[in-house]
Nucleic acid binder design. Structure first.
Lengths: 145, 145
DNA sequence: CGGCGATCGTCAAGGTGCTTGACCGTTGCC
DNA sequence: GGCAACGGTCAAGCACCTTGACGATCGCCG
């Protein structure tokens, strides 16, 4: 009745939940945050900060792509770049005080989304969904256990 | 270890499979086709053709968005627009002969992707994945059966 | 210690796959 | 026959990346 192929279905599902996440954050008073920012807020080490390249690796994207996101967050005052004392090439992306507050909201917003899905899908199906997606995204980490 | 939230995970999974689909089509001799085109090739009625608005509805996107895709396919000679005899406002998007050949390749390419996933995930998990995704995308069609 | 390939961050450009907004012509119902 | 609703279109813009190229620094090998 709809005929969507699997790749497209994944994209559509992403959009639905990304819109939900956006709405959650707007409700919590941060209308300028977008779903893509989650990749940083949820991946950055809260105390020490994290290198750009490492953030990119965690989000499975290029460092150039991650830079655009970090640039955006820096401009909005949520993170700042500080030199990495251990390597003069590197910088650490670190949350500002404001950024830490937002990171907390982010985690709550994501939890709200995921809990809604748990409720709608049931615990077992939810867990399987996550497992299956991670398997598609990073097959080598799910070798014949 | 990766920290991706569910919306992001869906996006990442989409990208993996969309890249696979792209590769499948390139292998089959159509390097100019992109995953997004599937929304048309798999949704258009093979004989009669289908209205733009209806295609958009099936793909769960705006008619303007669908127009861009159809424009692209028309320029490449895969579809053409013909007036709808039943409504002077409307046009039918119809496959050309070339378009029909490609639609067949598309279905095969999508099948190849989906069969690989069936193999990697197992039949049961694959079916559940589809069901769950459709549920997220179109909740009203999955009301308390 | 000197050279050199690898790594970190950055700049620039491009691309996919949409969106919102505005509009015109046609339809069809009161 | 008047008018809201619908079908298609033009225009602009946005989210979220990509590939390519490059300078600075690192660290290993000889």
């Amino acid at each position: 009745m709809d005929g969507s192929d699997l790749p497209r279905l994944l994209l559509e599902a992403h959009r639905v939940l990304a819109a939900d996440l956006d709405a959650e954050l707007a409700d919590r008073g941060y209308p300028d945050l977008r779903p893509g920012h989650a990749a940083v807020f949820l991946a950055v080490d809260r105390r020490s900060g994290t290198r750009l390249t490492e953030l990119a690796r965690r989000a499975r994207m290029t460092k150039q792509g991650m830079m655009l996101t970090v640039d955006d967050l820096e401009q909005r005052g949520y993170v700042r770049r500080v030199p990495d004392p251990e390597d003069a090439r590197a910088k650490l992306v670190r949350l500002t005080a404001r950024g830490r507050r937002v990171a907390a909201e982010y985690r709550r917003a994501v939890q709200a989304i995921e809990q809604r899905q748990r409720r709608d899908l049931g615990e077992r199906r939810y867990e399987q969904l996550r497992e299956v997606l991670e398997r598609i995204v990073a097959p080598e980490e799910h070798e014949v256990a």
